[in-house]
Design a protein around this nucleic acid. Structure first.
Length: 611
RNA sequence: GCCGGCAUAGCUCAGCUGGUAGAGCACCUGAUUUGUAAUCAGGCGGUCGUCGGUUCGAAUCCGACUGCCGGCUCCA
């Protein structure tokens, strides 16, 4: 625990002490420091709301002013249990009821491990520590939020109230943190998405369903062009597949019914519905029949792979044909839980920059490598450095995976080897694998510190098995191919959401929906402005003229707010000399230059995809 | 899905303890013809998320639903 974490953890104790002064019956569970501060989980019949914060904070301030010493003591397990039963843990002295969560935590501490208590003032807590010397060291703090959390993160456990706070050694640092919070709020993709008209989510269309407005569509199209160029270079073949497919397809793949909870319900043909209705079939019967395959229907596709598999399988394949790399910007639909939906980053319909590689086992390692290089290249193209790589492995002892242990071993080894050569640190995380195989994920953070998986590379021995795929080997015998699933962006929606925050809405020239805005000094120069905008458009540059009656200052202000990369001021001087006065979004006034020269420069900057 | 909070004009928000709505920006119109981050004036615009209840009377109180926000759980 570093010094700041120590301070924040200590502040959690102060929070608990303060709350106990107000609500003596409060039962506390865990109160650790976290990246964004600290929290303490509390079981309390009073519903804590932000309105209670001033009252709690005032009590906390008193405790800080009292400068209570943190005193550590080591006790035997039996003594600790005794204290817990007497309700003296996470409490101000004793009370009639046991400290039930603390007792439970105590039971979870392995035999032989030291059990320590920390006391400050009247407050004693079961705690491994460490802490600052005294409460007076907590220079500045604030409560930030109240949320709910299951005890120990388990849905079956009672829900506790989680009180979040932040603390720093000095008031100045707290103030700085507040300013940064505000800045983060300003670059939130949901706010910028509305202000810059990049996307829209409409209640009547449905929660978690993204409408790409014209400006957002441009960004997406540019990204797709960028990826497509890369794919052509690397020997991928582009395909298109429908949005729905028969349930039979997904029974074979295993997506239905095992993942029914996270899919839109099946579409059943009208005739089938009528027939079943006449038979007096209930909704429950229908669901059961769909599951068993006694009734047919269609599914909005939750993944593209089964369709790509069918393309692979539509003709005989020789080992000479492999690897077969099928790519598609494929839109998939998943029934995400309502509480999980979030702007563009967690949605119910999204387009993956998907591809499936069908390879021989010998080719597997090199192809994984190739996919990882592609993902890395994509991240590099946007100067996204703040990501981590996660190697998702099997959870030992879990039964949620399909396939043979030997296949898993080889696939995990191949992924690990590829990850090692990436040149970026990665973490191995058991339990993070897909049900059909291990994966390598690229994970980034959004403005409020939440992690999102973007690019992903996954190895799959399972689907080729389920669909009985084969190719003819040099021995003239059928062999099973290995599949690699990969998506460098992950999904267009999530990637654009993260990208908006990455650039704070100020997209580089090549991605900017509006690349150049012509600002006539007055409408006397409308003719020249029209000529200039035509020159840009002829060069394939997205340019518009601000024809409003505003003064130049107002036009510039608006263009800056709209984050247009280049503003072109045209007035009498420019019209006469066939020049343009250039103002860039980031550098300001760049002076005048000949129109043709500047158009060329812009074209080049776009072509190179400069940042 | 669960817990808590929120929902007033296109956007940001005001509207105290119930007496049928208001500002700024945006938009429209007019005047101004403008030189590197806001010209002035006027105008349009809301069955206060939806449905139901309490009340003589509901934006305001209660309930349900929908959506959003923060967590938790989940995430092929």
């Amino acid at each position: 625990m570093n010094d700041l974490e120590k301070l924040r953890h200590s502040c959690a104790h102060v929070l608990a002490e303060a709350m106990l002064r107000i609500w003596p019956e409060a039962q506390f569970a865990a109160g650790p420091p976290v990246e964004q501060g600290f929290y303490y989980d509390v079981d309390l019949s009073h519903r804590v709301s932000p309105e209670d914060f001033p009252k709690i904070e005032a009590e906390m301030a008193k405790i800080v002013a009292e400068d209570q010493k943190f005193e550590r003591s080591v006790v035997s397990r039996a003594d600790a249990m005794e204290l817990g039963r007497a309700g003296k843990l996470a409490a101000l002295g004793g009370r009639g009821v046991p400290s039930r969560y603390k007792l439970d935590i105590l039971e979870g501490i392995p035999e032989g491990e030291e059990i320590s208590l920390y006391r400050n003032g009247a407050f004693t807590d079961l705690c491994a520590g460490p802490h600052v010397d005294s409460t007076g060291r907590i220079g500045a703090f604030a409560l930030t939020a109240v949320a709910s959390a299951y005890y120990k993160g388990d849905e079956k456990n009672p829900q506790l109230q989680r009180i979040y706070g932040i603390a720093f050694p000095t008031a100045g640092e707290l103030e700085k943190w507040r300013v940064m919070q505000e800045e983060a709020r300003q670059r939130d993709h949901r706010k910028l998405g509305r202000e810059l008209q990049l996307f829209h989510v409409d209640e009547t269309v449905g929660a978690g369903l993204i409408l790409w407005t014209p400006k957002g569509a441009i960004v997406r199209q540019e990204l797709q062009n960028f990826i497509s160029e890369e794919l052509r270079r690397q020997g991928y073949e582009q395909v298109f597949t429908p949005h729905i497919g028969r349930l039979e397809l997904y029974r074979t793949s295993g997506h239905y019914p095992y993942y029914s909870d996270s899919q839109y319900p099946p579409l059943v043909e009208r005739e089938t519905l009528h027939r079943l209705a006449e038979e007096g079939c209930s909704c429950a019967d229908l669901a059961a029949r769909l599951e068993k395959g006694e009734a047919e229907g269609y599914l909005l596709k939750p993944m593209n792979c089964p369709m790509h598999i069918k393309i692979f399988d539509s003709q005989p394949r020789s080992y000479r044909d492999l690897p077969v790399r099928l790519a598609e910007f494929g839109t998939v639909y998943r029934w995400e839980q309502s509480g999980e939906l979030n702007g563009m980053t967690r949605v119910r319909g999204f387009t993956q920059d998907d591809a499936h590689l069908f390879v021989t086992e010998d080719q597997m390692a090199a192809e994984i490598q190739g996919c990882l290089d592609l993902v890395k290249k994509v991240f590099g193209a946007f100067d996204m450095k703040d990501y981590r790589v996660r190697l998702g492995l099997r959870e030992p002892g879990s039964d949620k995976y399909v396939g043979r242990a030997g296949d898993w071993d080889r696939a995990e080894a191949a992924c690990r080897d590829a990850a090692k050569t990436l040149g970026v640190p990665y973490t191995e995380e058991p339990g993070e694998a897909a049900f059909y195989g291990p994966k390598i994920d690229f994970v980034v953070r959004d403005v409020i510190g939440r992690e999102w998986q973007l690019g992903t590379v996954q190895v799959d021995f399972q689907l080729p098995e389920r669909f009985d795929l084969h190719y003819t080997g040099p021995d003239n015998k059928p062999h099973r191919p290995v599949m690699i699933h990969r998506a460098p962006f992950g999904s267009m929606e999530r990637f654009v959401g993260v990208l908006i925050e990455h650039f704070a809405g100020a997209f580089p020239l090549w991605l900017a929906p509006e690349q150049v805005r012509i600002l006539p000094v007055s409408d006397k120069f409308a003719d020249y402005a029209a000529e200039v905008v035509a020159a840009f458009r002829a060069a394939g540059v997205r340019a518009v003229v601000d024809t409003s009656q505003d003064k130049l200052g107002a036009k510039i202000r608006l263009a800056q707010i709209n984050k247009v990369p280049y503003m072109i001021v045209v007035g009498g001087k420019e019209a006469e000399s066939r020049q343009v006065s250039v103002r860039s979004r980031k550098a300001g006034d760049e002076g005048s230059k000949p129109l043709e020269e500047f158009v060329e420069r812009i074209k080049q900057e776009i072509g190179e995809r400069l940042l």
